[in-house]
Each structure stands twice: as structure tokens, then as C-alpha cells.
């Protein structure tokens, strides 16, 4: 390329960049206006995340479900400004830089082919966000197993198209999942036929039930309440009907329930109230 061309190009770029920070009162500068849009879009995004987690998601019955809520909020807070920046520039470009060209194109824009500073900033920001996301996820993963009492083990059997729950040591077998608060629940999951997905909704945990071997998941119920146990893995004809009732109750209610299901009171108490 000739030096003449380079000069013209540099001029045009300088002119293009100028409006970004200089010239005119503050409110007329693109940078300012775009920032206003960024704030508006971000606020909307964060509000939407708060609305969905608060009003629409099932209530928090375990620490795991709590961390699902927190994750949605935190990730939205992190992602919203970046997304909002894209939206703001897109919206601003339509509003401010649109040319009604008809069949003839408008005059060419400035030939900005790249900008090392902007690109580096963008990349740096992405890397920082990824690190934050990763640390958050790893912390949540490693903070499992905090209970002091012996965990309550519940054996979960999936089969087309029904869940069966066994409470080992008590002889109780039921289609209802009942778990106590204040104890870590250790689910041992398997299937009699095909792959199912064990998903006790408000406990915020999920793992597949595979035929032939066990999978494991733990949950720490914190609050009493009702929830649904669903199958989250397409398992054939009546997959949609593979729902079971779930309940988080107090330890005392739990042992009473076990007795009502035919457990001896000594077995029920030993199982429900546990020990170190």
C-alpha cells in the first residue's frame, strides 16, 4: 500500500476515534450514551435473573438448591454488563449511525481494521470472567460433605416408569421420598432397566440411574417442604409419568413416618436420628 493511502487511513481512524472521548458536551458523546444504555440493559438482565430465581424456581430446601440460586444471580451480575455492552453498541449503531441508503449504499465508514488496545481489553476481561466463574464452581464443588452426623443413606431404584426408595436397615420401601433436615442425605442410585435421571427437584441435585451399577449424590436438606422427584432422562413410553412425591421433614417426623411404614421403632430411631 502506498504511504498516501496509509495517511488517509490514519486520518480517518483518528477522526473516528475522536468522537468517542472528545468533542461536544458530555451527554452528546457516544461513550457516555452507550454507557447509559449499558447500565439500563444490565439492570434489566439482573432484574430478570432475580425475578426468575425468586418467583419461578422451586423453593430452596437444601444448600445445593441455594447454590443454584446464587449461581444464577452471580453469573448474571457478571455477564450482564458484557452482554449489555454488545446490546448497547448494536442499539446505538442503529440509532445513530444508520444511513437511509435506499438502493445505493451510504458512503463507506472509516477503515478500522483492528485496534490492539480494545482487543486486549476484551480478551483480558474474558479471561478474568472465566477465572471467576471457575473459582466459583470449584468452591461449590469442594464444599460438599460438611455434615457432622453420619449421613442418611437412601437407596433409589429407577425403573420404567417408577421410582422406589429403600431406607436400608429399616426394611421400609416406598414410592415416596422422605428425608430429614439437618442431616446429609447420601443417595445410592441404580436402575433396573434403562438409564433414568434421578432429580429431586428442590434439593438441587441430579444424577442418572444406570442399570448394573450405582451412582451417588449427596444433598443437605435445610428446610421442610414438599417437592417433586422427576425423571430427567428420556426413558421410554411413560417417561413423562415418572414422577414421585418428595418431602423434607424434621428428624422426629421422619422416624415417625418410618414407623408408620412398618419399621420397628428401634430401627427407625437409629436410622433417623443417627449418631456420630
Amino acid at each position: 500500500m502506498s504511504s498516501n493511502h496509509e495517511d488517509i487511513k490514519r486520518e480517518q481512524i483518528a477522526e473516528a476515534v475522536e468522537g468517542w472521548t472528545h468533542g461536544g458536551p458530555l451527554y452528546r458523546r457516544p461513550a457516555f450514551r452507550i454507557m447509559i444504555l449499558v447500565v439500563l440493559f444490565s439492570a434489566f438482565g439482573i432484574w430478570a435473573a432475580a425475578f426468575f430465581t425468586d418467583k419461578i424456581m422451586p423453593s430452596i430446601l437444601s444448600t445445593q438448591m441455594g447454590s443454584v440460586h446464587d449461581t444464577v444471580i452471580l453469573f448474571t451480575v457478571l455477564a450482564a454488563p458484557v452482554s449489555a455492552l454488545v446490546y448497547a453498541i448494536a442499539a446505538y449503531s442503529v440509532y445513530k449511525w444508520r444511513r437511509t441508503g435506499g438502493d445505493e449504499p451510504p458512503p463507506d465508514g472509516p477503515p478500522i481494521r483492528e485496534n490492539t488496545l480494545v482487543t486486549s481489553l476484551w480478551l483480558g476481561m474474558s479471561v478474568i470472567l472465566v477465572v471467576v466463574l471457575l473459582v466459583w464452581g470449584m468452591t461449590a464443588l469442594s464444599s460438599e460433605n460438611q455434615g457432622q452426623l453420619k449421613p442418611v443413606t437412601v437407596d433409589v431404584y429407577g425403573q420404567q416408569w417408577l421410582w422406589t426408595f429403600k431406607y436400608p436397615g429399616t426394611g421400609v420401601e416406598s414410592n415416596q421420598l422422605v428425608v430429614p433436615t439437618g442431616r446429609q442425605i447420601r443417595f445410592v442410585i441404580t436402575s433396573y432397566d434403562v438409564t433414568h435421571g434421578f432429580w429431586p427437584n428442590s434439593l438441587g441435585v441430579q444424577v442418572d440411574a444406570n442399570p448394573g451399577f450405582n451412582t451417588y449424590i449427596t444433598a443437605d436438606p435445610t428446610k421442610t417442604g414438599q417437592f417433586a422427584v422427576r425423571c430427567s432422562q428420556l426413558c421410554g413410553l411413560y417417561h413423562a409419568y415418572m414422577d414421585a412425591n418428595g418431602k423434607v421433614v424434621t428428624p422426629a417426623q421422619f422416624s415417625a413416618w418410618l414407623i408408620s411404614q412398618g419399621a420397628s421403632s428401634s430401627a427407625a430411631n437409629a436410622y433417623a436420628l443417627g449418631g456420630k
Binding site: 449503531s93 444508520r98 444511513r99 451510504p106 458512503p107 465508514g109 485496534n115 479471561v127 470472567l129 466463574l133
Partner: peptide, 27 residues
């Protein structure tokens, strides 16, 4: 998986960088 957001983010940078101060021809 989270690293994926870096190249994906660049897609957005490329497109909004292209829109930046362009003469937007709304066809």
C-alpha cells in the same frame, strides 16, 4: 467449557467492532 466464552466473546467483538461508527445500511 468456560474457556469457550473467550472465543465466543471474540465473535461479538468482531461484529460490534465492525458496526462501530459504520455507515449502517439497513437492508
Amino acid at each position: 467449557t468456560e474457556l469457550i466464552s473467550i472465543p465466543t466473546g471474540i465473535f461479538f467483538l468482531v461484529i460490534i467492532g465492525t458496526l462501530w461508527r459504520g455507515s449502517i445500511w439497513t437492508r
